[in-house]
Amino acid sequence: MHYTQSKSILSSNNGMNLYRGCTHGCIYCDSRSSVYGMDHAFEDVEVKKNSLELLKKELLKRPKSMIGTGAMTDPYIPLENHLEYVRGALKLIYKYGFGFTCITKSDLILRDLDLLEKINEKSKVVVQMTLTTADDELCGILEPNVCRTSRRVEVLNALNDVGIPTVVWLCPILPYINDTPENISKILDYCVESNVHGIICFEMGLTLRHGNREYFYFKLDEHFPGLKEKYIKEYGSSYAIPSPNNKKLMDLFMKRTSDEGILNSPPEIFRYLAEFPQKSYQSKLNFEPSGL
């Protein structure tokens, strides 16, 4: 871990990254790609020390809208457990009347359930959770340093119990590893049971480019001997790595989600995530954020 000072914290579309780098250890992570210009080791997480000061200033200037995080780095990495930058950001988001959405694989988000409920009462919260495999043992290989799929499903159920909508990212689906009808069907079962609002799935496959390709192949050699050579033979240096079962699995995905009334169009889901509700709540709901 190391600290840095930032000049801004919100992007033009209200995206926020309090941390840069990650320790979850997911073998397929695109954020390792050299295209992002990270000038430090990926696991040496950069902490934007002045991020909450910047966030307060920027929220005061912007119209009420959804604030999003997690596109590049899971906000609920283990460091957050004691640094509490995300919790601090949630207090500000609540105080100034904004909405919140994040992408995570971690059950640490339940620590902040009190704040998420308050924000959702006042404006809107949507929690996005990544699910790649229904097999906890395989999950421990693909995503070794974060809670297993069964625990993430418990998180989805806990959020549903308090009325916080959820969206699942069904990706990546790795050829010859988790690209089976049994796996996709079980994940969809989980989504139905936990009443998810939408599931984002572009295609069944993954993407590889310089930086994450090398790490992914290193991990294939470690856990799936011989599979790297199969990937190289079939895909070469392609960016898109589609599953040979893509059509069959996408047909399964589209039919099941349509039958269950779950949103399955990425553009439609992204519109839903960005939409800020017009609610007329008073500024105080018997809860006053402290410390900021």
Rank of each mutant, 00 (worst) to 15 (best):
Cys201Ile: 03
Gly68Pro: 02
Leu110Asp: 02
Asp179Arg: 04
Met250Lys: 07
Val167Lys: 03
Phe216Ala: 13
Glu121Trp: 02
Gly15Ala: 10
Leu115Gln: 02
Pro242Cys: 04
Glu117Arg: 14
Gly261Arg: 04
Asp259Ser: 06
Asn81Lys: 15
Leu188Asn: 02
Leu90Ala: 15
Lys124Val: 05
Ile199Lys: 00
Thr69Asp: 15
Thr104Tyr: 09
Val86Asn: 13
Ser280Trp: 12
Asp44Ala: 15
Val35His: 05
Asn183Thr: 06
Asn50Trp: 08
His210Arg: 14
Leu252Thr: 02
Glu182Phe: 00
Tyr36Ile: 09
Ser265Ile: 00
Gln282Ile: 14
Thr73Phe: 09
Ser280Val: 03
Leu131Phe: 07
Ser238Arg: 12
Thr4Lys: 15
Lys105Pro: 00
Gln282Trp: 13
His24Leu: 00
Ile241Val: 15
Phe98Ile: 12
Leu10Gln: 12
Cys191Arg: 04
Glu121Asn: 13
Lys122Asn: 00
Lys122Asp: 01
Ile241Asn: 07
Ser65Pro: 05
Val86Cys: 11
Tyr235Ala: 01
Ile241Leu: 12
Ser11Met: 04
Phe270Cys: 04
Val168Ser: 02
Ile187Leu: 14
Met72His: 11
Lys91Thr: 08
Ile109Cys: 11
Lys233Thr: 09
Cys191Met: 02
Met254Ala: 12
Lys247Ile: 15
Pro266Ile: 03
Leu18Gly: 08
Leu131Glu: 00
Tyr272Lys: 15
Gln128Asn: 10
Trp169Cys: 08
Tyr231Leu: 06
Ser31Asn: 13
Glu275Gly: 04
Leu138Trp: 01
Asn246Gln: 13
His223Thr: 07
His223Arg: 06
Met204Gly: 02
Leu116His: 01
Leu249His: 03
Leu156Arg: 01
Glu275Val: 06
Glu268Lys: 08
Lys279Ala: 05
Glu260Thr: 03
Ser265Arg: 12
Tyr36Pro: 05
Leu273Tyr: 08
Met38Phe: 15
Asn81Met: 08
Leu142Arg: 03
Gly97Val: 12
Tyr272Ile: 12
Leu131Ile: 03
Pro267Gly: 02
Met16Cys: 10
Leu249Ile: 00
Lys230Tyr: 15
Phe224Pro: 06
Ser185His: 01
Phe202Met: 14
Arg256Asp: 01
Leu159Met: 15
Leu156Cys: 08
Thr23Asp: 08
Pro144Glu: 04
Asn13His: 11
Glu58His: 07
Tyr176Asn: 09
Ile119Pro: 08
Glu80Met: 09
Asp221Tyr: 09
Asp221Glu: 13
Asn120Ala: 09
Leu79Trp: 01
Leu220Val: 07
Leu113Arg: 05
Leu249Ser: 02
Ile200Asn: 12
